[in-house]
């Protein structure tokens, strides 16, 4: 594992992503769902909404870093608000 240059923060980052994927897989198996159409006028499933959330969160974090440049953890609050909005309306 040495050549991959692991650090704890990046390991935790990937563990969170993996946990999310596993959780959503289990959810998809236990509670199958029908896709719905939200404000983007595209059909989305829970998995799609997770993808939109994660991708958007990456951009929110970068925007925070580029524009504000301090107190990076607060960007996660914006991400959570964004996630809630995506799961509610998209």
């Amino acid at each position: 594992m040495d050549w991959m240059a692991w650090t704890w923060p990046t390991a935790i980052f990937f563990m969170v992503i993996a946990a999310l994927l596993i959780t959503f897989t289990i959810l998809a198996i236990k509670f199958p769902e029908t896709p719905r159409t939200g404000i983007l006028r595209i059909e989305t499933t829970r998995g799609d909404r997770l993808f939109i959330t994660l991708l958007g969160s990456a951009f929110i974090n970068l925007a925070w870093l580029g524009i504000i440049g301090a107190h990076q953890p607060y960007a996660l609050i914006v991400c959570l608000v964004y996630a809630a909005a995506v799961f509610r309306w998209v």
């Binding site: 050549w3 991959m4 240059a5 692991w6 650090t7 990046t10």
Partner: peptide, 16 residues
């Protein structure tokens, strides 16, 4: 890709 993520938060002067 994971390795790239690991590299992106660190600095190196070689020698791993």
């Amino acid at each position: 890709l994971m390795t790239v993520v690991n590299y992106s938060v660190q600095d190196t002067f070689g020698q791993n």
